[in-house]
Computed example of a mutant assay.
Amino acid sequence: MKHSRRNFLTLAGASSLLAIAAPKLLAQGIPQEILNKILPLPGKYGEYYGQAKIRAFHLHNQPETSPLHKALEELWIEVFKQTEGELFVSPIPHDASIPAGDPQAVQFITDGRFEIVSVAGPIIDQVAPDVIGIQNIALIYQSSQDAFEIINQPLFAETLNGSVTKYNLTYLPYGTFDNGMRVVTSIANKPIYQLEDFRNLTIRIPPSNDMAMTMAALGAIPEKVTMNQVFQFLKSGAVQAQENPLSVALGFKLYEVTKYLNMTNHAWSGYNTFFNTDFWNSLSPEVQKVIQNLLPVYQAKQIKAQEEYNQYAYEQLVGTLGMVEIKPNLSGASRELIKVYRSIYNRLNPQAQSLIRSKLEERTGSKFA
């Protein structure tokens, strides 16, 4: 039995804006200027859309210039071609500017208002706490490659899909894309040189219990804010810092409202792709197979493109845009976080625990039963 809308919203920790009724795909709640950009689609892209037998939309929170958006465009054009016009999917950046951002985007997929969404792990750590916590554990991954060694195991896909199926969501193998290691950008009087500098730092985090526990354990004051509001919260002084991959600091122009680029590399960030299950099941086996075959191809392309873009973002932020780079000494952080690690680990189901146990033990020197 599927969970109710009320239960989902409670678990997702979303705002009251999620109460928008959505009986039709293009009903209220989507600004007209966004609809004008989506339909009709320009040029050859619009021709493909017009020719397709099945049309769908894929929400994500990144800009059009991001490696994620570009990879999704290429993926869905290739699906269109290989299915001989059966399916065409249009990626929509910035979650179509819907008011409550990522949590609302996920809700729209469960309801069937849109068909596909890509979201970061922290957004759904209350929806799939028994699996997604693997992605949210701080200071255990050294790189994106380190994280994908776990995420691309068949057991991860099987377990995550089993966890979200009650919300009318489907996750496929190789359905996670990269965003890179998360760093902290902070305002002029809040550089981070060492662990102690987190004390009483008001920092924006995603709507995530795991991230809130992590930052609180380091002594910071976490504020849950969706990505579409981060710039204004920093500009107004409501928060003193935020944490995200380098590409986000560049793509969302956070260099305009923060000074320090604190290279904490404290967590990995990626985008998990979920299909509305009814939509997925409505596709023919042949179309499903095309998508399943292409996902690992375009995941690999996107990971490479994201690594290159993050290096470009770093050079832009520190060079052209004048942010001040700091490489904090975070030695001792694992001791501060051991209770958080155990809390997240104890919420994981046995299959997910088996995926992360050895890495946790290696990084902390502690046993995880």
Rank of each mutant, 00 (worst) to 15 (best):
K2I: 07
S4E: 07
R6K: 15
A22I: 15
L26E: 13
L26T: 12
Q28Y: 11
G29E: 09
I30D: 01
L35R: 06
L35Q: 06
N36Y: 07
G46T: 14
Q51L: 15
F57A: 06
H69L: 01
K70H: 06
A71C: 05
E73N: 04
E78W: 04
E86L: 10
S90R: 14
H94I: 06
D95P: 02
A96E: 05
G101W: 00
P103T: 14
F114C: 08
I116R: 11
S118M: 01
P122I: 09
P122D: 12
V127D: 03
Q135F: 08
L139G: 03
Q142E: 14
Q145S: 11
Q145Y: 09
D146K: 05
I150A: 12
I150H: 07
Q153C: 08
P154G: 08
A157C: 12
N161W: 01
G162T: 08
S163E: 05
S163K: 03
T165G: 03
N168M: 04
T170G: 00
L172W: 13
Y174M: 10
G175N: 09
T176Q: 08
F177M: 14
V183W: 01
I192V: 14
Q194T: 11
P206E: 13
P207I: 12
M213G: 04
M227Q: 07
N228T: 09
Q229G: 03
F233R: 11
P245V: 04
V248P: 00
A249K: 00
L250N: 03
L254F: 13
E256Q: 15
V257E: 08
T264C: 06
T264R: 07
H266A: 10
H266C: 02
Y271I: 02
N272L: 13
F274W: 02
F275A: 09
F279N: 11
N281K: 10
E286D: 09
V287Y: 07
K289C: 07
N293D: 11
K301G: 05
Q302G: 07
I303L: 12
I303D: 10
E307Q: 15
E308V: 13
N310L: 05
A313D: 00
A313H: 00
G319C: 09
L321I: 11
L321R: 12
G322Y: 03
L330K: 04
A333K: 05
L337K: 01
L337R: 06
I338L: 14
I338P: 02
Y341V: 06
S343V: 14
L348A: 10
Q353F: 04
I356K: 11
R363A: 11
A369W: 15
A369T: 15
A369Y: 02
